[in-house]
Simulated scan of single mutants.
Amino acid sequence: MNSRDTKPGVRFLLSLIEPHDAAGVRQRLGIGEPQPLTDEHAVWELDLLDAPRSVLLWMLERDDPGTNRLVFHRARVDDALKRDILRGLPFGTATGPLPVEIDCGRPYCPHAEPDVPVSRRGLIGGLRDARTMGSGRVAARAVSRPDWPSVAEADRAEPLPGFARWALGVRIDCPPELRERFGSHPKFRNRFRRAGIVEPRDYAELGRPPRDVLAVLYFGTRLFPRRVAEAAASLTPLVRAELGANPDAWAVLAQLLPDFAGTVPELVATSGAVARV
Rank of each mutant, 00 (worst) to 15 (best):
S119W: 11
P90C: 02
G134K: 12
A130P: 06
W166Q: 00
R156K: 10
R87C: 02
V170F: 04
S150D: 14
R145F: 03
R145S: 06
R165K: 14
V216E: 10
P110H: 13
V143C: 08
F163L: 01
L123T: 05
G105N: 10
P146A: 06
V216A: 10
R87I: 00
G169Q: 07
K82Q: 15
D202A: 11
D79H: 13
W148G: 04
F163N: 06
A164K: 02
L98V: 07
L98G: 08
C104Y: 15
R191G: 02
R193V: 04
R201E: 15
E177L: 02
R121I: 01
R145V: 11
I197P: 03
M133C: 03
G162N: 13
D84A: 02
K187T: 12
I172C: 05
A139F: 01
P186D: 05
R128Y: 11
V216W: 04
F91P: 03
D115L: 05
P149R: 00
R121S: 08
R120D: 13
D173A: 03
D202V: 02
R171S: 15
R201M: 03
P175Q: 06
V118T: 15
P186M: 11
I197Y: 05
P107N: 13
G126F: 06
D147C: 10
Y218D: 14
R106T: 10
H111C: 09
G162K: 09
V138W: 03
L214R: 14
L206W: 04
R137V: 12
P200T: 05
V118P: 08
S144E: 12
E199Q: 13
A139Y: 02
P97E: 12
A164W: 10
P107M: 09
L217T: 10
A154S: 10
R141N: 10
R120Y: 00
I85H: 09
A140I: 08
F188V: 07
D147F: 10
D79Y: 02
A139K: 07
L86E: 06
A142W: 10
V170D: 09
R189G: 13
D212W: 05
R83A: 11
P149W: 12
E101W: 11
T95Q: 15
L89R: 14
D78S: 03
F192E: 05
A154M: 12
P114I: 00
V216F: 00
E101Y: 05
R189L: 13
T93H: 11
M133P: 05
P117A: 09
A154W: 04
P200I: 03
V170W: 00
A139H: 05
P99I: 01
A112C: 04
A157N: 04
G183H: 07
A142P: 01
A142D: 01
S150Q: 11
E153W: 01
R128C: 04
V216N: 06
R165C: 06
S144F: 00
D147Q: 07
